[in-house]
């Protein structure tokens, strides 16, 4: 049981961030019109590509060859997620641009 408390104590600030981010995420998108569901999902998809930061950290502090190889793949996968995600979202939204005066 003490391990649980230890974990909670060490990570108290992180847990605050988690709780507030959850509420923020809900609040930020709760009024989205159905029109934007697909682009929003795609945009959110790109944002979780932030996992690439972890891939860079792993790769950057790798010491064995196998770790370097795996890290290399992790960075490629993460980049695909980030770049592909943002470009696709942009392409979807490109099509909304010409629409005339939306209230």
């Amino acid at each position: 049981m003490s391990e649980v408390f230890e974990f909670l104590y060490v990570n108290r600030e992180m847990l605050f961030i988690v709780a507030l981010s959850v509420l923020l995420g809900i609040e930020v998108i709760s009024h989205v019109p159905a029109v934007l569901h697909t682009p929003l999902m795609s945009g959110a998809n790109a944002i979780h590509g932030v996992v690439i930061v972890g891939a860079i950290i792993v790769m950057g502090h790798a010491h064995s060859t196998s770790a370097i190889v795996l890290g290399f793949f992790a960075v490629i996968l993460g980049t695909l997620n980030v770049v592909g995600g943002f470009v696709v979202t942009d392409r979807m939204l490109e099509m909304f641009r010409k629409k005339p005066g939306k209230k």
């Binding site: 992180m14 959850v22 995420g25 930020v28 998108i29 999902m41 979780h48 996992v51 972890g54």
Partner: peptide, 29 residues
């Protein structure tokens, strides 16, 4: 969520907030 766990692992705030935001927004969506 998986990205957020990575954020926990490295005490990396960008991964944490980014991941959790998508986790909760995605669930609502």
């Amino acid at each position: 969520l998986a990205a957020a766990f990575g954020g926990f692992l490295y005490h990396n705030q960008a991964m944490l907030t980014g991941g959790i935001l998508v986790g909760s927004a995605g669930t609502i969506l």
